[in-house]
Amino acid sequence: MRRRWWSRAAANAAGVLVALFAVFPVFWMVSTSLKPNREIFSATPQPVPHHPTLQHYRDVLGGDLLPGVGFGSFFRNSAIVAVATVLAGSLVALLAATAVARYRFRFRTAFLVMLLVVQMVPLEALVIPLFLMIRRLGLYDTLASLILVYLAFSLPFAVWMLRGFVAAVPRDLEEAAEMDGASRWQTFWRVLLPLVAPGLVATSIFSFITAWNELIFALTFLSDEGKYTLPVAMTFFFGRDDTAWGAVMAASTLLTLPVMVFFLVVQRRMVSGLVSGAVKG
């Protein structure tokens, strides 16, 4: 009995350590963003702000993040790109997933294998050809170029995951609907869609996060500061020599917040999607 108590205490202690390691940088980001400069640059750092202030948030939201362009502009660009990616992505992914899960067609297996392989292609390796392609299409320095590319990146995963959801809907249900005289479109809209809605939410959030966080393509495809997305603006904003850490942390917190919220909603699905089939149960 004694030994059990000990090992239990050790496990709890380890748990606390892991939690601290995981949370600390995030905590430090938020904490720094709420400190007055005096405390940020003091000789003895304090874990919690003594005189919490929203000054840095006011600076970030009120002033210019980069010369002539405010935080709101970058935030809006990021939001436009992410939301457009999600909307277009959900529609296409749902149709494709239904096709793959419900109908047998030639190259179906090839398509599935391609979905897997494509996910693993390093996007970083495609920057150069996509850059030239975007230029040729006349989309250079537009948000549309990013939407197009993010769509392509998030689709394979979305289709792969939705496929599972669609396949889980019993066929009988659809057949019953058809017997009752529903058209194919009605069946899809009234029967299938409500049942795969949770999956759709999960994949949407995944696409949103992909688009929201992406840096390398946004860095390459955009040249006008007014078009920058938030991550691009951040690299320039804090790349200056006299880094205003308080403001940088405030901006980072604002960038992180939407992702955090969405992520906590989606994480379950993401794990089971990525490790799908790995565990028989």
Binding site: P25, V26, M29, W212, M234, F238, T256, M260, F263
Partner: peptide, 22 residues
């Protein structure tokens, strides 16, 4: 512990790197 760990996971790569740089 799981929530804490998820928080690290949820942090965008870019802000994570910026915080560590700080």
């Amino acid at each position: 512990v799981a929530s804490a760990v998820l928080l690290a996971w949820a942090t965008p790569a870019i802000t994570g790197a910026i915080v560590w740089k700080w």
